[in-house]
Simulated scan of single mutants.
Amino acid sequence: MVVAANRARPPMLETRGLTIRFGGHVAVNAVSCAFRPGELTCIVGPNGAGKTTYFNLISGQLPASDGQILLDGQDVTRLPVSQRARRGIGRAFQLTSLFPNLPVLENVRLAVQARQQRGIDLLSMWTSHRGVRAQAEACLDRVALAGKRHLPVAALPHGDQRKLEVGILLALQPRIFMFDEPTAGMSVDEVPVILDLIREIRQDRSRTVLLVEHKMDVVRSLADRIIVLHNGTLMADGNPAEVIASPIVQQAYLGVAEAGASAEAGHA
């Protein structure tokens, strides 16, 4: 019912025929999708399907070869990463992108300052403001890192660095949250913290959430909608149960066809 209601709302983010080529290889092939506020979309597909590349195109890490990216109906295809971020596109990376020699709290505090200020100079970045610190502390509480606020990031285990990435994204308060395998490298005990945060973000119907994820149990528990990429092409888009059960997804993503082919080969 939530998804049906969202379909009546204008998209916050849209890609139209979005394509990128690396030499003769088409990594993302004319993908057209609209993403609306209040909707959590999981992007799935086999390794090499183009999921992270599609994210890189949307957030600006890669330039599109063809097609458009629209934010609130305005073309942002040629805007740099910084301008897209200022307009509300927030990205947590598959690999950590942090300041390893700074304390955990300082990483988040800088993100809060970046959101609040335009044209930040070095002096203002390092000036202590009680309100900024309080906001940074609150973000660390939400990702269960308050007890490690004074540690240098380099001293954190990989799972905690992933949590810190999410904390920084929270500090930026984007309108579009993009998570690329946010639970990768986390222990079983750590995963619920991040999943609960993503559920909390989804409750804000003014936000749009995009999630690249391999773990189908995570996808099932979070997704309002699933889109499937295969060889850079959009091959399915819709209700999670229907998409997961579709033969084309079973074959391309879950390997059903391969299993069948192997069985036939064994009988040959």
Rank of each mutant, 00 (worst) to 15 (best):
N101M: 14
R86M: 04
R86Y: 01
Q83Y: 01
T77Y: 01
T77F: 04
L110N: 10
A92E: 03
Q113P: 04
Q83H: 02
L79Y: 00
G88H: 03
V104S: 11
R84Y: 03
A111Y: 09
Q116C: 08
L110F: 14
P80G: 04
R84P: 02
R115E: 08
A64L: 09
Q74R: 11
V108F: 13
A64F: 03
V108N: 10
P103M: 13
D75H: 05
R84F: 00
R78N: 01
S65W: 07
V76K: 05
I69C: 01
Q117R: 15
N107F: 12
Q117M: 14
I89V: 12
I69P: 04
R87H: 04
Q117C: 11
P80Q: 05
I69Y: 02
L105S: 07
P103I: 11
Q113K: 15
V81E: 01
N107I: 13
G73K: 05
P100S: 10
L98M: 11
S97D: 06
F99G: 10
P80M: 06
G73I: 06
G67H: 09
L70Q: 04
I120K: 14
Q117L: 14
R91G: 04
S65C: 09
A64Y: 08
D72P: 01
A85I: 06
R91Q: 05
G73T: 04
R115A: 12
I69A: 03
Q113L: 15
G67I: 08
L110R: 09
Q83K: 13
L79W: 02
S65Y: 07
S97L: 07
A92M: 08
Q74V: 05
F93L: 13
T96N: 11
P103V: 09
F99V: 14
L102G: 07
G73Y: 03
S65L: 12
G73D: 02
V81S: 01
F93Q: 06
R109Q: 13
G88M: 06
P100N: 13
R118Q: 14
V81T: 06
G67L: 08
N107M: 15
D75Y: 01
I120S: 10
I69R: 04
D66F: 06
A114Y: 09
Q74W: 00
P103F: 10
L102D: 11
F99T: 08
F93P: 06
Q74P: 00
R115P: 10
L105Q: 12
N107L: 15
